[in-house]
């Protein structure tokens, strides 16, 4: 069976002024359906760039990124937008909720891109919020929630459209220990109970230990497992 995410010979370079900076060097990695992968490494190692490329919000300079059979590097911007809305759920470090929208409305956002009816959307949002334990806070605005609750709303937003892959960029980076544990437990549930594939970037070893596989990057190189 082929991997859900298959990255081969991925190189990413940025141009800053006249200087060319290589952020990822010939990275190849396969991630299976249902894996929970943590990407670790020091700042500037290229882990967030790799995550962004897998999420389809950045493009490779060289190499192939095939996800669920689609080479996302060749998709146009509009195709990529549609692809993201179907396949990717985002969980950001700073939650990135829309402050003028309630928890319910924030979770409903990605569903606005689907052909679901209003009542179907409502059911889906309520389900997502109950999964993250915030069914009783759906009318609260982000400012009325704690950091941990905000992140749980963000996770509800990510799961509402039922994507295959969750992309989590330092999901516990802005949280206290207790809230961080809650979020990691939630991610574990999504992975184990719902079979979702999770790719997470973290600096925190205890967060990374929740993942089944840990990949280390250093200066754009993927370090073979067992050598980190």
């Amino acid at each position: 069976m082929s991997a859900l995410i298959s990255i081969s010979h991925l190189t990413k370079t940025y141009k800053r002024d006249k200087q060319e900076i290589t952020v990822l060097k010939d990275v190849s990695i396969d991630i299976e359906q249902g894996d929970f992968v943590a990407l670790m490494g020091p700042s500037g190692s290229g882990k967030t760039t790799l995550l962004n490329i897998i999420a389809g919000i950045d493009r490779p300079t060289q190499g192939e990124v095939i996800i669920a059979g689609t080479n996302i590097g060749v998709l146009s911007e509009t195709e990529l937008s549609k692809w993201r809305s179907r396949h990717i759920g985002f969980i950001f470090q700073f939650y990135n909720l829309i402050p003028v929208l309630t928890a319910f409305e924030n979770v409903e956002l990605p569903l606005m891109l689907t052909p679901l009816s209003k009542s179907e959307r409502r059911r889906q949002v309520e389900l997502a919020l109950s999964v993250v334990g915030l069914a009783d806070r759906m009318d609260h605005y982000p400012r009325q929630l704690s950091g941990g609750q905000e992140q749980r709303v963000a996770i509800a937003r990510a799961i509402a459209s039922d994507p295959d892959i969750f992309i989590a960029d330092e999901p516990t980076g802005d949280l206290d220990r207790v809230s961080a544990e809650e979020i990691l437990t939630l991610l574990n549930r999504l992975n184990k109970e719902f079979g979702k594939t999770i790719v997470m970037v973290t600096h925190d070893p205890s967060a990374a230990n929740r993942a089944r596989i840990i990949h280390h990057l250093d200066k754009g190189d993927l370090i073979p497992q067992g050598q980190s």
């Binding site: 999420a55 911007e77 509009t78 937008s81 993201r84 809305s85 985002f90 950001f92 990135n96 891109l113």
Partner: peptide, 14 residues
């Protein structure tokens, strides 16, 4: 700016 980026990442188009 950040919100527009979030919306784009969620799949909202131009």
């Amino acid at each position: 700016t950040r919100e527009y980026a979030v919306l784009k990442s969620l799949g909202f188009t131009g």
